[in-house]
Design a protein around this nucleic acid. Structure first.
Lengths: 104, 104
DNA sequence: CTATTCACTTACTTTATGTAAGTAAGTATA
DNA sequence: TATACTTACTTACATAAAGTAAGTGAATAG
């Protein structure tokens, strides 16, 4: 490589640029959700969702909470680090509203 | 699917969430660049770069300009639609500066 | 000539994702 | 008391996407 890109930015992109990740975070910005809710809302397969949620937990972006009811309830939510991605996703939303046609 | 995500946002994510796309756009925000410059700066393979530039051209985000010099010079730059992704990428950069450690 | 550069393309390998079935723990129904 | 059903996954296998490396054609340098 000749020059190089800011390594923090590159790492941020590395995290967010995996398929489904941004959509999962976007979904969790609405509030905490269960596995099958995320699965059915965004249309990701369970196999990949499970993988992504683990990655995001490791990155400290998502928190997994187990509620010991019967039956047990497991909810995923954003940490502070995750919540603070909101301005970035908001900007993508603004861009989309301006530049993406509703029918494409 | 139970509910559904805003289709414009989903489409925006569909475009941007392919591997390398965001990095290519980020790179072109610096100014127009040649194929091999992008290739060597971000470390993407020629095979994928070629594919992505074509996709981004179709989306109206990137413009390909041929300068008929000897040897011919081909430069890629952002259209207005592409440039207007800057605020979104800026927000990712801000997030990265706050939340990503330099050594990870 | 021969070598080299640029902007790609092609062929082949490796990795990522999708699909579908399976599992374990518990609840509800017949 | 079976049987079926739900949730939150995991596993096995098939397909799609990306990486690697070599090749192409046009031009220019030595």
């Amino acid at each position: 490589m000749d020059q190089s890109i800011c390594p923090r930015f590159e790492r941020a992109i590395f995290i967010m640029n995996k398929r489904w990740t941004t959509l999962i975070i976007f979904q969790l910005l609405e509030g905490s959700q269960r596995f099958c809710e995320i699965e059915s809302t965004i249309g990701v397969s369970g196999r990949v969702l499970s993988e992504r949620l683990k990655d995001l937990e490791k990155e400290g972006i998502v928190k997994r909470s187990v509620y010991d009811e019967t039956p047990v309830r497991i909810e995923y939510s954003l940490t502070e680090k995750g919540e603070s991605l909101k301005p970035a996703l908001d900007q993508i939303q603004i861009w989309a509203e301006t530049w993406i046609e509703p029918n494409s």
